[in-house]
Design a protein around this nucleic acid. Sequence first.
DNA 1: GCCAACGTTGGC
DNA 2: GCCAACGTTGGC
Length: 137
Amino acid sequence: MAFWLFKSEPDVFGWDDLVARGEAGEEWDGVRNYQARNFMRAMKLGELGLFYHSNIGKQAVGIVQVVAEAHPDSTADDPKWDCVDIKAVRPLPRPLSLEQAKREPALKDMVLVNNSRLSVQPVSDDEWAAILKLAGL
DNA sequence: GCCAACGTTGGC
DNA sequence: GCCAACGTTGGC
Protein backbone atom coordinates (compact mmCIF):
# COMPACT_ATOMS: atom_id res chain seq x y z
CA MET A 1 0.00 0.00 0.00
CA ALA A 2 1.61 3.19 -1.17
CA PHE A 3 0.65 6.77 -0.45
CA TRP A 4 0.65 9.73 -2.80
CA LEU A 5 0.23 13.46 -3.10
CA PHE A 6 -1.71 15.30 -5.82
CA LYS A 7 -1.10 18.96 -6.37
CA SER A 8 -3.59 21.37 -7.84
CA GLU A 9 -4.11 25.09 -8.07
CA PRO A 10 -7.36 25.69 -6.21
CA ASP A 11 -8.51 28.48 -8.51
CA VAL A 12 -8.33 26.00 -11.41
CA PHE A 13 -9.50 22.82 -9.70
CA GLY A 14 -9.65 22.71 -5.92
CA TRP A 15 -10.74 20.39 -3.14
CA ASP A 16 -14.33 21.60 -3.31
CA ASP A 17 -14.43 20.78 -7.01
CA LEU A 18 -13.27 17.25 -6.31
CA VAL A 19 -15.81 16.84 -3.51
CA ALA A 20 -18.50 17.95 -5.96
CA ARG A 21 -17.60 15.03 -8.25
CA GLY A 22 -18.73 12.62 -5.57
CA GLU A 23 -18.06 8.92 -5.79
CA ALA A 24 -17.32 9.02 -9.52
CA GLY A 25 -14.24 11.14 -8.88
CA GLU A 26 -12.25 13.02 -11.45
CA GLU A 27 -9.83 12.03 -14.19
CA TRP A 28 -6.48 13.47 -13.11
CA ASP A 29 -5.65 14.55 -16.64
CA GLY A 30 -3.31 17.17 -17.99
CA VAL A 31 -0.12 15.84 -16.41
CA ARG A 32 2.69 16.16 -18.94
CA ASN A 33 5.65 15.14 -16.87
CA TYR A 34 7.22 11.69 -17.06
CA GLN A 35 7.99 11.35 -13.37
CA ALA A 36 4.45 12.29 -12.41
CA ARG A 37 3.03 9.96 -15.04
CA ASN A 38 5.15 7.08 -13.86
CA PHE A 39 3.94 7.54 -10.30
CA MET A 40 0.35 7.42 -11.56
CA ARG A 41 1.11 4.22 -13.45
CA ALA A 42 2.33 2.72 -10.18
CA MET A 43 -0.87 3.53 -8.33
CA LYS A 44 -3.23 0.76 -7.31
CA LEU A 45 -6.97 0.89 -6.97
CA GLY A 46 -7.96 2.01 -3.49
CA GLU A 47 -4.65 3.65 -2.57
CA LEU A 48 -4.81 6.93 -0.70
CA GLY A 49 -3.20 10.29 -1.22
CA LEU A 50 -3.16 13.88 -0.07
CA PHE A 51 -4.76 16.69 -2.03
CA TYR A 52 -2.51 19.75 -1.95
CA HIS A 53 -3.39 23.30 -2.93
CA SER A 54 -0.47 25.02 -4.64
CA ASN A 55 -0.05 28.79 -4.98
CA ILE A 56 -3.16 29.62 -2.98
CA GLY A 57 -3.17 28.22 0.52
CA LYS A 58 -0.09 26.03 0.04
CA GLN A 59 -1.50 23.32 2.21
CA ALA A 60 -2.72 19.75 2.06
CA VAL A 61 -6.44 19.95 2.61
CA GLY A 62 -7.88 16.49 2.15
CA ILE A 63 -7.48 12.79 1.57
CA VAL A 64 -8.22 11.26 -1.80
CA GLN A 65 -8.48 7.71 -3.10
CA VAL A 66 -7.55 6.16 -6.44
CA VAL A 67 -10.80 4.98 -8.06
CA ALA A 68 -9.37 4.05 -11.46
CA GLU A 69 -5.86 2.86 -12.23
CA ALA A 70 -3.77 4.43 -14.98
CA HIS A 71 -5.48 4.74 -18.36
CA PRO A 72 -4.91 6.99 -21.37
CA ASP A 73 -5.38 10.68 -20.65
CA SER A 74 -8.45 11.69 -22.63
CA THR A 75 -7.10 15.23 -23.03
CA ALA A 76 -3.74 14.19 -24.50
CA ASP A 77 -2.92 14.10 -28.22
CA ASP A 78 -0.13 11.65 -27.55
CA PRO A 79 -1.03 8.17 -26.23
CA LYS A 80 2.06 8.12 -24.03
CA TRP A 81 0.25 10.17 -21.37
CA ASP A 82 -1.71 8.17 -18.81
CA CYS A 83 -3.58 9.23 -15.72
CA VAL A 84 -5.64 7.85 -12.86
CA ASP A 85 -9.02 8.89 -11.46
CA ILE A 86 -9.31 10.07 -7.87
CA LYS A 87 -12.17 10.94 -5.54
CA ALA A 88 -12.37 12.94 -2.33
CA VAL A 89 -12.50 10.81 0.82
CA ARG A 90 -12.45 13.31 3.66
CA PRO A 91 -11.10 16.75 4.48
CA LEU A 92 -8.24 17.14 6.95
CA PRO A 93 -9.50 18.52 10.27
CA ARG A 94 -6.29 20.57 10.39
CA PRO A 95 -4.85 21.26 6.92
CA LEU A 96 -1.11 20.76 6.73
CA SER A 97 0.69 23.81 5.40
CA LEU A 98 3.92 23.76 3.44
CA GLU A 99 5.45 25.91 6.14
CA GLN A 100 4.52 23.36 8.76
CA ALA A 101 5.89 20.51 6.68
CA LYS A 102 9.19 22.35 6.33
CA ARG A 103 9.38 22.83 10.10
CA GLU A 104 8.51 19.25 10.95
CA PRO A 105 11.62 17.02 11.31
CA ALA A 106 9.64 13.93 10.28
CA LEU A 107 8.71 15.60 7.00
CA LYS A 108 12.02 17.15 6.02
CA ASP A 109 12.57 14.60 3.25
CA MET A 110 9.11 14.99 1.73
CA VAL A 111 9.18 15.48 -2.02
CA LEU A 112 6.84 18.41 -1.51
CA VAL A 113 9.49 20.16 0.58
CA ASN A 114 12.43 19.33 -1.66
CA ASN A 115 11.02 19.34 -5.19
CA SER A 116 8.18 21.76 -5.21
CA ARG A 117 7.57 21.43 -8.93
CA LEU A 118 6.55 17.79 -9.15
CA SER A 119 2.77 17.66 -9.37
CA VAL A 120 2.24 14.00 -8.46
CA GLN A 121 4.47 12.59 -5.74
CA PRO A 122 4.94 9.57 -3.49
CA VAL A 123 4.56 9.95 0.28
CA SER A 124 6.38 7.45 2.51
CA ASP A 125 4.56 5.37 5.12
CA ASP A 126 6.27 7.27 7.94
CA GLU A 127 5.45 10.63 6.39
CA TRP A 128 1.85 9.58 5.91
CA ALA A 129 1.50 8.56 9.55
CA ALA A 130 3.10 11.81 10.74
CA ILE A 131 0.87 13.89 8.49
CA LEU A 132 -2.34 12.23 9.66
CA LYS A 133 -1.35 12.88 13.25
CA LEU A 134 -0.58 16.54 12.55
CA ALA A 135 -3.79 16.88 10.60
CA GLY A 136 -5.84 15.65 13.52
CA LEU A 137 -6.79 12.19 12.24
C1' DG B 1 5.08 40.19 -10.28
C1' DC B 2 9.60 38.23 -9.79
C1' DC B 3 12.72 34.73 -10.16
C1' DA B 4 14.89 30.14 -9.05
C1' DA B 5 14.48 25.45 -10.18
C1' DC B 6 13.54 22.24 -13.33
C1' DG B 7 12.25 19.84 -17.70
C1' DT B 8 12.13 19.91 -22.63
C1' DT B 9 13.57 21.20 -27.16
C1' DG B 10 16.49 21.74 -30.95
C1' DG B 11 20.87 23.16 -33.18
C1' DC B 12 25.31 21.61 -33.70
C1' DG C 1 25.02 13.29 -27.34
C1' DC C 2 25.91 17.81 -25.50
C1' DC C 3 24.28 22.06 -24.03
C1' DA C 4 22.14 26.65 -24.68
C1' DA C 5 17.71 28.53 -25.05
C1' DC C 6 13.29 28.47 -23.77
C1' DG C 7 8.85 27.55 -21.24
C1' DT C 8 6.53 26.34 -17.01
C1' DT C 9 5.81 25.83 -12.19
C1' DG C 10 5.26 27.50 -7.79
C1' DG C 11 7.16 29.78 -3.60
C1' DC C 12 8.04 34.18 -2.05
